[in-house]
Amino acid sequence: MKFKTFAAFVGPSVFLMFLFIAAPLVSVFVGSFQLTQPVLDQIEEETCTPGFLAQTCTTTMVTRPALDEYGHIVTTTEWVGWLNYQRVLNPEAAWAAISSFDWGALMQINFWSALRFTLMFTLVTLPLVIGVGLAIALAVNNAAKSIRGPVIFVSLLPFIITPVIGALSIRWLFIGDGILTTALEHWLNRDIAMFAQAWTIELMMLFFRVWHVAPFAFVIFYAGLQTVNQDTLESAIIDGANRWDRLRYVIVPHLMPLIIFIALIHLMDTYRVFEEIVGFTSQAHVISLQWLTYDFLQPDDAGNRAFGRASASAMLTMVGIVVLLIPLLRRTWRDHKGGSY
């Protein structure tokens, strides 16, 4: 392809990526080193609020932001170095907790407890998604041709459902006197409260994520299985390889690039776990890094938002993903170079 044609095809995409990905990223990066504050005035204010019959008026000192001539809040922005990161990471308290082996104290700091859950969630779901996806793909591949279509359709359903809706559905099955909780209570003959402790909520979240993402792995693996070299498989059978050996020595090595591809996508997606926290309202027990960023950005009743800390937390999330991806990317790079002889 001529360079000009290539550029014409790729140009719009590069432009949009710059506009919607690179530019916001740079602004968040800059924002994470800045602190923007309104200029505040302390004023005495008399406020009257209604009772049922008569008002009560109170005079208090309140802070109100100063407004400029156009009615906008006057703000100052200054460079604060690593201050936002320090406020998110709380390194002194974290170090004190680590050096005294006080796990509970470390988990009291929002960032570290969010990191704990996010990492656990990512690393536990990864093998499960790959395993379940591969199992479904093998099962479908070995199923009779006549039922393959319906089976594929049904297996794909969880992936089609919007994550928040899926999470809410599972929540409603289990919360309070949800039908599954009631069924479990009936079966086990004991009182069950799935939302009363962290581990049951985490279990539901893990189940939900695997249920939701496994179909994606299944589709990719199923496509990969169609390209397995039948001659190799047949010669393996002649050599006396049983089903397990064939899977281990023929199929899995053949699918390896796909496994790495799915692992990459899954790590990137799952490190940003968010829907589960909102869907299961698990904030009391577990939070994730992405939820932490969201929480900083969420205005309270008085309209305050923590932009600086939100930017720092978003940057830290990105750094976390990159760190997780490095081993896989290195491997892909090596294979890529090795394959281009």
């Binding site: 208090t60 009743d301 008085a302 309209g303 305050n304």
Partner: peptide, 17 residues
């Protein structure tokens, strides 16, 4: 009356978290 101020908004969030 609920003491609505900027400070109270921050306090409410801190308590809730």
């Amino acid at each position: 009356a609920y003491p609505s101020t900027s400070q109270m908004g921050l306090m409410h969030t801190a308590l809730g978290n």
